[in-house]
Write a protein that binds this DNA or RNA. Structure first.
Lengths: 333, 333
DNA sequence: CTGAAAGCGCTTACAG
DNA sequence: CTGAAAGCGCTTACAG
C-alpha cells in the first residue's frame, strides 16, 4: 500500500535494521549511511507505522483522557482549561492523546488494548467502578477526587479550603447569612465542598441551616435556573457560595430573574476561577486555582508512572485563593 | 506479557483463527466452540490489541481531531460544542478520537501513520499548508472555511448571511450607525464575516465607514479589551456586531469599562450562539447555528470517506438565524 | 466448521 | 558499523 520501512531499505540499499536505527536515533549507523537513509526517507515521504512499532515495543504510544458525561462536561470551561494543561504536559513526549467522552467510547477503550495509561476526570461512583478500573492494569491518574480509598494517584484543588475561604470572605464583608449551592453528593468534589462550607460556618460561629443549602442534581446550572430562583426567593441569605463558577453564572442569572441585583442584594462567589469568570460582566468573585497546573501535573505523574517510577505522592492538592471581584460587596444595611 | 489471542486459543483448545473469528463476529464458528471461546475470553480478561489488528487491516482505528492554536481555541466554547457533536457522530463506530492541540502534536500526527482520517478545525493559511495536508493522503474534513480552493470537504456556518442578519436586526431596531468587531483577515471566517457586514450595509443603504470596523489580531477578546474600549470611545455607533460570541462577551466588558450601559447606550450582537450565551447576564443576542450538528455532520462525512464513498457535496453550509436577547434594543433618542 | 501458515510493518538481540 | 532473522498479536485466504 503505502511506503514501508522495507521500501526505504531497498531504495537506500541497506537493511531495515539500519533504517529503524536511524528512525529511532539509535547508535550504530555510519554517518554516510545515515545521511543516505535520511534522504530516502524524505524523498519517499516515508511515515513510520505507529501500530507496528507499538506491537514490538509492547505499547501503544497513546494515553487516554477519559471524560465521563462528556456532553455535559465539555461545556464546562473547567474541563477545557485542565485539558489544555494536559496537552501542554504531554507535548514534549511521543504520546498522543486519545479522548473519550461517552460511555460507549469508554467501553471501547477499556475493552481493547488501545492506550498505555489513562487520565480520568473524576467519575461518579456509579459510573466507573474501582474494580473495573483496577482490572485493566493500566497506570491511571485521577483529576479531582474519586472515591475515598482509590488506589490511583489524584490531583485536585483543595476544594474544602477553597469553599471555606469563600465563606470567610463573605463573612468579612459583613455577611452573616451565607447560602451554598452545591452539586450532587455522589461526587466527592461536592462532599469536599460541603465540608468546607459547614466547617467554616462552625469556625465563624455561624448557624448551619439546612434551608440555606441547595443541592443540584448536576453541576449544570443552566438546567437548574428555576430551582435556583426558587431557592433565592425563599431565602434571606445575603451572600451565596457556589461549588463551581459555572454554577455561579447560573446563580447570577437566577438572581437577576427574581429581581435581585448583584452584588447589592446578593453577593455571589464561584469556585475554580475558570478563565471566562474574570471576563464576564459583572466579573465573578471566585476562588482561584491553577487549573492549567493541575492538568500539567496530572500529565507529568502519568508520564512518570509510564516510565515505571514509583509514585510516592498519591495525592497532589492545589492550593486555592479567594479573589474578590465584582459580584461581591457588603450586604445592604 | 498480557494475555494474547494465542493464550485464549490454547486455553480453549482451538486455533487463533477461530478466536479471531469470534472476536470480529465473522461466521464460520460452531455454536459450542463459540460459547467456549467467549467464556475463556471473559475468564482470562482478554483484550485484543488494536495495534496488531490495525497492522493487518491496514488501518489504525483512530481519527484525529486537529485543533490549531489549541491553547486558545480550547477556551472558546465554540470548539467544545462542535467537539461534542463530533464525539456523538463517532460514537457508534469503532473509531477512537485522537486529539491534537499543539503544533508539536500535529507534527507527530502528520509525520507518522497514526490515524485513518482527520477532522481539521479551520487553520490559518500560515499554519498548515494545503500541500502538506494533501501529501499525507488521508481523508480530511475541514470545519469552518480553510482556503478558497481547498480540495477538502468542509462544513461551516453561513457566516456571511449570519452577520448580515445581525446587521439587519440592528437596523430594524432603529440603528443606523452599526459597528463591526472582527477577527484577523488571515482567517477565511473573518473574511466571510466582513463580506456579510459590508454587503448588508450596502443593501440597507448605509454608509461603510472604515472607522466603524475593529479588526483584532485574534478571536480572543480577553486580550483586546483595551483595544475595544478605545474603539468604543472613538465611535458614535449605537450598535455593534461581533464575529463571534466570545468577542461579544469582550465587547460587553469593554463597553461597561468605558461607562456604556447595555443595551441602552450600545447594542451588542454575537455570532454562533454558543451555549453559554443565553446563560450569561445580560443574555447575549446572537446569530444561532447548530454547532452540535456541524460536529456531527463533519464526523459523518469523514466516516463516509473512510468507507470509500465519493463525497459529492464538498461544502455543507449551515443556516444561521438571528436571536434577539437582552443585549440589543432600540437606540436612545 | 476448523486450523496451519503467511504476512502486516516494525524492532531488537545476535552474529559478524 | 551492518544485516539476517525472529517475533510482537493479530487476520485472512487457503485447504480440508
Amino acid at each position: 500500500m503505502s511506503v514501508s520501512i522495507k521500501d526505504v531499505a531497498r531504495e537506500a540499499g541497506v537493511s531495515t535494521a539500519s533504517v529503524s536505527r536511524v528512525l529511532s536515533g539509535k547508535p550504530g549507523v555510519g554517518k554516510a549511511t545515515e545521511k543516505r537513509i535520511r534522504e530516502v526517507i524524505k524523498q519517499m515521504d516515508y511515515r513510520p507505522n505507529l501500530g507496528a512499532r507499538g506491537l514490538v515495543q509492547q505499547k501503544t504510544g497513546n494515553i487516554a483522557v477519559v471524560v465521563p458525561r462528556g456532553s455535559f462536561i465539555l461545556n464546562n470551561p473547567f474541563f477545557s482549561t485542565v485539558l489544555d494543561g494536559i496537552a501542554q504536559g504531554i507535548d514534549q513526549t511521543d504520546y498522543n492523546i486519545l479522548m473519550s467522552f461517552t460511555s460507549t467510547q469508554q467501553k471501547k477503550l477499556l475493552e481493547k488494548k488501545s492506550v498505555d495509561g489513562i487520565i480520568l476526570f473524576a467519575p461518579r461512583i456509579e459510573e466507573l467502578t474501582l474494580e473495573s478500573l483496577k482490572k485493566i492494569g493500566l497506570p491511571i491518574v485521577v483529576i479531582g477526587s474519586y472515591v475515598e480509598d482509590s488506589p490511583f494517584p489524584c490531583v485536585r484543588p483543595d476544594d474544602e479550603d477553597g469553599i471555606a475561604q469563600a465563606v470567610q470572605a463573605l463573612y468579612q464583608l459583613g455577611h452573616r447569612n451565607i447560602g451554598f449551592i452545591n452539586g450532587p453528593l455522589s461526587s466527592m468534589h461536592s462532599i469536599n465542598c460541603l465540608n468546607g462550607y459547614t466547617k467554616e460556618l462552625n469556625n465563624l460561629g455561624l448557624d448551619y441551616l439546612d434551608e440555606n443549602i441547595l443541592e443540584l442534581d448536576e453541576f449544570d446550572a443552566s438546567k437548574a435556573t428555576n430551582e435556583i430562583s426558587t431557592f433565592f426567593k425563599e431565602q434571606k441569605i445575603t451572600g451565596v457560595v457556589c461549588a463551581s463558577d459555572y454554577l455561579a453564572v447560573g446563580a447570577i442569572k437566577a438572581a437577576t430573574t427574581v429581581g435581585l441585583s448583584i452584588p447589592e442584594d446578593l453577593s455571589i462567589v464561584g469556585a475554580d476561577d475558570v478563565p471566562i469568570s474574570s471576563f464576564i460582566t459583572p466579573s465573578l468573585s471566585s476562588v482561584h486555582v491553577d487549573l492549567l497546573g493541575i492538568g500539567k501535573k496530572a500529565a507529568s505523574i502519568l508520564l512518570d508512572m509510564l516510565l515505571g517510577k514509583q509514585i510516592e505522592n498519591k495525592e497532589v492538592v492545589f492550593k486555592m485563593k479567594y479573589i474578590n471581584r465584582a459580584t461581591t460587596s457588603s450586604p445592604k444595611e
